Amino acid sequence: MSFLAFLLLGLIAGAIAKAILPGRQGGGWFVTLLLGVVGAMLGGWLGSVLFGANLQEFWSLQTWLLAIGGSIVVLLIYGLIVGGSRRRES
């Protein structure tokens, strides 16, 4: 998969993960892109380690599910870090 396709996958996976998670997550499109790319990397790595998944195809359902799942995990961690610091400031 090319680098541009990977960025597009990360952006869309991050946006889908934000839509799936309840509540309001902060950050604009750039934060969504970063978290989505990190989530896609995490999901791809976990998928290859745990399930032996091959993530070379952009249009593969397996690739998208692992990227979205990884993005959800990264968004949850991001929410705990950012949400925890906001509560302490108030």
Rank of each mutant, 00 (worst) to 15 (best):
86 R>M: 15
13 A>I: 02
64 W>S: 10
14 G>C: 09
59 W>M: 13
77 I>P: 08
26 G>I: 03
1 M>E: 05
17 A>S: 00
76 L>K: 11
10 G>D: 07
27 G>H: 03
9 L>T: 05
24 R>N: 12
17 A>G: 03
24 R>V: 13
61 L>E: 05
6 F>S: 14
88 R>N: 04
30 F>R: 10
14 G>E: 07
88 R>Q: 02
50 L>N: 02
55 L>D: 01
47 G>V: 00
22 P>N: 09
88 R>S: 10
40 A>K: 05
2 S>G: 14
61 L>S: 11
54 N>S: 12
14 G>N: 08
83 G>E: 13
77 I>L: 15
33 L>E: 03
48 S>K: 01
56 Q>P: 04
32 T>V: 12
26 G>C: 03
11 L>A: 15
89 E>S: 11
44 G>L: 00
14 G>R: 01
19 A>R: 11
10 G>E: 06
40 A>I: 07
16 I>C: 11
75 L>W: 08
78 Y>N: 14
5 A>I: 06
88 R>T: 04
76 L>W: 07
13 A>D: 00
66 L>C: 02
77 I>E: 05
85 S>A: 15
90 S>W: 09
18 K>M: 12
28 G>P: 14
64 W>D: 04
75 L>Y: 07
31 V>L: 15
37 V>I: 12
49 V>F: 05
78 Y>H: 14
9 L>I: 12
1 M>L: 08
21 L>K: 06
51 F>D: 04
